[in-house]
Each structure stands twice: as C-alpha cells, then as structure tokens.
C-alpha cells in the first residue's frame, strides 16, 4: 500500500488523511524533514499559506521538500498548498518555487466571496465533481509545460506539471474522492 504524507502543521490535515483512507491509501501526518524519506507522495493541505510557509522555514523543511520534488516525488497542493508550490505570487513571496505558475492569493475576495460549484474535470472523473473554494487563489499565468486541468469562469483552478499537481479548491472537504484517486495514480 502506498504511504502518502500530509504536511501536518496546520489546516485541513485530518480531512486529507480521511480522504486518503477512503481512497484506500495510508496517510500520515508529516512535520519533519526526516519523515519525508518514508513517504511515497506528499500532500500540502489547505490552510493559511503565510503560516505554513513560516513553519516550513523555521523547521528547515523548505529545501528538503524541494529536493524530494526534484527527485520525482509526487506532490499535490490544495489551495494554500498551490500557493506554496508556485514560482511566483502576485504581491507576495513564493515559498517552494517549484511549479511554473503565477498565483494570485485571495483572488476571489474575502470569506463573503467563498463558493461551491460543480465542474467537469475529465482527468479526474467522467461526471462533474463538487468544488469548494474558500478564500481561494487562482492561477493567473501557467508556463508552457504546465497542463491546465480545470478553469472556472475563465480562471485556472487546477494544474499539473510532471509530478506536481495543484488545485485552488478543496477536494478534501467533499465526499468525492476523484481528485485524491487521480493523485494516487501519479504515485
């Protein structure tokens, strides 16, 4: 069975662990660089991107995660996780600088502008799946080697670049496991 780490400092950690369990994978919360050596893939959950990036730096995990991704370890960022993976952040500091995307934080506005919708993402599932956007970012620009998986109202909401997957929404907050199953196939 594949073991998937969920970066465990803050945010929707438990929700991702539950979703992994439902999809038949073993999930484990990861808070140290050493723990990166015993996982087959890493999920960076939703949360506050500034908080998580501070903690990654404080606990010396930024470079080890970058090295793991460079060596091919599959990684998936949801919402804050997408922000952390991006090479460029509009009006902010990038963290892991791995994905060739430019991300706008809080792109839709404040909590009053959070929303839920359904969309067809052919790579994930045959039928439309529920998407939850909480103070969500969007991808303003994606590099040539980035595959766009989903757009909502003209804004890019999910992308893949080789072993890296990123979504502006939160599959872990819904009962639908199509996204996590797609990620597990990348491992």
């Amino acid at each position: 069975m594949k073991t998937v780490g969920v970066l465990g400092f803050q945010g929707s950690v438990e929700e991702h662990l539950n979703a992994l369990g439902k999809a038949g994978a073993a999930g484990v919360s990861v808070k140290t660089a050493a723990a990166l050596n015993s996982i087959d893939g890493l999920i960076i959950p939703g949360g506050e991107s500034t908080t998580v990036s501070r903690l990654l730096n404080i606990f010396g995990m930024t470079d080890p995660i970058r090295e793991k991704i460079k060596s091919g370890m599959p990684v998936w960022g949801t919402c804050a996780g997408m922000i952390l993976l991006a090479k460029n952040i509009i009006g902010g500091e990038p963290c892991l600088k791995m994905m060739d995307i430019t991300v706008r934080r809080n792109a839709y506005g404040r909590q009053a502008d959070s929303f839920k919708c359904r969309a067809l993402i052919p790579e994930f599932a045959e039928n439309p799946i529920p998407l939850v956007f909480i103070r969500a970012p969007w991808v303003e620009h994606a590099g040539e080697n980035v595959q766009i998986l989903c757009e909502i109202d003209g804004h890019i909401a999910a992308v893949r670049q080789n072993n890296m997957l990123a979504a502006a929404f939160h599959p872990e907050l819904t009962e639908n496991t199509a996204a996590v199953e797609y990620f597990l196939k990348m491992i």
Binding site: F9, Q10, S12, E48, F115, K116, V132, I134, L173
Partner: peptide, 18 residues
C-alpha cells in the same frame, strides 16, 4: 445550508493555528 458549510469550511482551514 451551503453558506453554513462554506463558513464551517473556513474554520477548518484555521485548524492547528493561532
């Protein structure tokens, strides 16, 4: 309601935080 769910979801994103 959908709004209550979204509002509850924001709190979930704050978990483990200060």
């Amino acid at each position: 309601t959908e709004q209550w769910e979204l509002n509850k979801n924001l709190a979930q994103m704050l978990k483990g935080g200060v």
